[in-house]
Design a protein around this nucleic acid. Structure first.
Lengths: 201, 201
DNA sequence: CGCCGCGTTGAGCCACGTCAACATAGGTGG
DNA sequence: CCACCTATGTTGACGTGGCTCAACGCGGCG
């Protein structure tokens, strides 16, 4: 294992809730253990469910999403969470200044929309799926024409889109070749915002 | 359009919340319109999202699931809902006898689990996907060894699993041939509870 | 150094998509 | 009642997108 835990607080300003940082690939929490709910500040997180001894991809969280809300009800997590890219989380609790119901409803509808996003990542041709995934991960750092994206490993991308690592790798090469993507360092890319269907074969 | 609206109440007992019935294929509500939240009593419902003028499958609800909770926050629905099989719904509101937060949290975690189920419907080989879908629809009327399932149309099953109608049809024929499924009338089947992986080629 | 995990690329094959023809059920009008 | 129509489901033949298997490059680490 190359990643080492680095849960030091990255935020020193006292008036802001403390954030925790996780390195790409690092586990954030395990199903059936106790802990708090979190809000994703930067980076992306993958949720997994173990069923009949098989770990399956079960959800994705990006900037602004809440994960682990089920602990507030059950006292323990229902999924495993793992950092897809380097990421920062802050503890989440219902905002005292607003009615609890409203906050939870907001979380609920956000979760439903995110779920629909994830479902759409498993729909249609491989190029489109990978492109949609990268767009989804680009929710932050986005300008109008392009966005910097911290890329997860090919294995994670494969499990999220239900493709194979070979296909993911080939598609990223292809997107790079046609200029839809440029590498910025090892695991960052610049995504040019093409209309999704405007790719030459 | 062959289906006619039949929103008469099917439940006459005064102490129970009134249910509404919908026929297979009938729209339940449209995105951006106002209405209430519902709990699915029997049957199954499909949710769709329209994005860039394309209608995409976005979620699935079976017995016990809550749909349309977002109206409580926004005042209008975010998805289209359509009956996959004949189904009954009852209006849903937070139970006055319990804290609102608890009810909503329960709904939230149920939604997340259902989302993970739906994601798993787009994972792996076609036979497994269709089998998982039928098992999911069999949440009601289940005995230990077998379950009666009201089948959606092949077109809906195709869009849910991201397969084609031809593949769905072929797989159902195959499952029937090997005895995993028996037809009970036109659109009901008896599902024998095999371990999922125990299918001969 | 060798080892290991990750990513990349090629060759071949097969599961599923595509296209086409046909079957069946219901609905509608005469 | 039948004749006709349309929506839905079924089955076959064929092509292909993505999977499989295999080889190799690269970087980090003991």
């Amino acid at each position: 294992m190359l990643q080492r835990s680095k849960k030091t607080d990255t935020c020193t300003a006292p008036e802001i809730a403390k954030t925790s940082s996780f390195r790409r690939g690092e586990p954030i929490y395990q199903a059936a253990t106790a802990g708090k709910a979190w809000r994703v500040i930067t980076g992306s997180v993958r949720l997994d469910r173990t069923e009949a001894d098989v770990v399956m991809f079960a959800g994705l969280a990006v900037k602004g999403d809440i994960i682990g809300a089920e602990t507030l009800l059950f006292g323990h997590y229902s999924f495993d969470a793992k950092a897809l890219s380097d990421c920062a989380l802050e503890p989440w609790q219902a905002d005292a200044a607003r009615p609890l119901g409203e906050t939870l409803l907001e979380t609920l509808t956000a979760a439903e929309r995110r779920a629909a996003d994830v479902i759409s990542l498993r729909c249609g041709q491989a190029v489109d799926r990978v492109t949609r995934l990268i767009h989804l991960l680009a929710k932050e750092n986005a300008t109008k024409a392009a966005a910097q994206v911290a890329m997860p490993g090919v294995r994670d991308m494969a499990e999220i889109t239900d493709l194979t690592v070979e296909t993911i790798s080939r598609i990223i090469s292809r997107l790079t070749k046609i200029g839809a993507l440029s590498r910025l360092g090892q695991r960052r890319v610049l995504l040019r915002r093409f209309p999704l269907q405007a790719f030459p074969a």
